[in-house]
Nucleic acid binder design. Sequence first.
RNA 1: GCGCCAGUAGCCCAGCUGGAUAGAGCAACAGGCUACGAACCUGUAGGUCGGAGGUUCGAAUCCUUCCUGGCGCACCA
Length: 548
Amino acid sequence: MRAGNHLTLILQNIISAMGYSLPAKLTVEPPKDKSFGDLAVNCAMLLAKEAGLPPRALAEDIATRLRAASPDIANVAVAGPGFLNITFSPTFWQENIAIVEKAGSCFGTAAATGKKVQVEFVSANPTGPLHIGHGRGAAVGDSLCRILTAAGHTVSAEYYINDAGKQMRTLGKSIWLRALALTGKSDAPFPEDCYQGSYIIDSARALLSQNPQLTESPEAEGIDACYAYGMRTIFAGIKQDLADFDVQNQEDFSELSLTHSGAVERALAQLEQAGHTFIEGGAFWFRTTPLGDDKDRVLRKSDGSLTYFASDIAYHANKYERGFDHVIDVWGADHHGYIPRMRAAITALGRQQSDFDVVLVQLVNLLRDGEQIAMSTRAGQFETLSDVLKEVGADAARFMFLSRKSDSKLDFDLALVKQRTMDNPVYYVQYAHARIQAVWRRAAERNLNIDAHTSLACLTQEEELDLLRMLDRFPQVVNDAAANLAPHYISYYLMDLAGLLHRYYAAHSILGGDDAELMVARLRLLRAVGYVLRNGLNLLGVSAPETM
RNA sequence: GCGCCAGUAGCCCAGCUGGAUAGAGCAACAGGCUACGAACCUGUAGGUCGGAGGUUCGAAUCCUUCCUGGCGCACCA
């Protein structure tokens, strides 16, 4: 990051002195092979194209100017079709330690952008406990919040409760029927369209012990009581599961509050005024096809009731009314067909497409020793998130969820996630952090004077420079993860950084020699690596342990 | 039928806003604890990036088409 910015600035001066402007598609990145140098840049090829000159000669020219440009640049080589491979001086890299030390837990955090971002995730109907798939959504949503915050945005996390729909009435009915059966009021078979899980029976039993007269009530009243009780207790359980999963600061937003406040009617009126609606077959429609959807959508059914889509439009309108510049929804990938109509609504609400993003999270296959465990809330057979967390721990579960692109399916093998092997790299990364802490504990016993002004010039081993270069990349990785809404960028970076640390540790003794200055410099390097490991793990919501 | 996602080493996956000889890990094989934590490290081997066309100086990456797998295509939520 620092190296890249530094180089870009120097290049800008050189290229403008040559009478050109810096190509927009310029890339500055680590070269394919580190023996080439520290950074590779393709500016000569891009310029050659623009100027109609041979790239090789242009590259040689720029290289000559680069060599003279800054004492930080130790070497410039021209390679292949016109790449410039730049090597910085060790001094330049060694300065990274002081930079990381100064920033501490803020290293990797960008300056405030003033942009307000909202991330909505999980938002499961409170009709049953969270399962493993919700866990993935929670990990992705929460981690995105942490990453976007680090990228300088002002971020809010939200959980949308669909408490206005049919599924919640079904929940009430399910508990009611179980209560009737428990009190011997009915021996009818339990309907298939009701929730089958044993937690429904538990819920009915608990409610009956609170209110033994429940089943004496008229049906409508009884179902209402069951609904209210079930909703409240199940939702409390969900929030507890999310808290156990280290989900931070997520606020709840009720669908009912929208319908009650008249927000849905207002949103529909807004669409109607803008000419996006029509009436057909007794229903009120939103003409989404001109806005990229493949068919028009009903907002108010011919029986007068509203569709889910109608309140969802109102909900998103509400988000923008609350001042969010960028709205991000984390959805299960089975809802991907819903994206075009939601995008149509965003346009109709007068917002830019770039103000809205959907992060799709593919379903999770829960396995045990390679064998699939079936999951379905309705059929009542599933392993809950809470069971999984008890078995494997939140850290391992989160890292597993976040070490894969969110939009690709994931096998979550309970046996594997408990293993401490590289198939399960959370421990590899955490171990690197714990190892650093262990060395520092040893160092503390020796009463060393760790003076921040000691020289770092002795850090010239290849493994040391590798670590220093890697530290420098962290802010850029955070930035890229935020821009691409991709938490797994962080995971892969951390695995790489941990790998370099373990390699270094195996190759060089930190406390072994009698050169005190070298010892201190190495301790400082390790500490800087430790900070970055901790900061990165924190972006994933995974702990950075002192010991393991 | 239409749409979205995926197909990269024996396995699990990165890389995809075009750049150099396609990368980790696991498994396999050969090594390394009298050093600060071996939950670790070193080395070897392993590939027509699903197939075929195209775009250009250059394609795993972009376009077209086909094959395979997953998921969607409601006046459900």
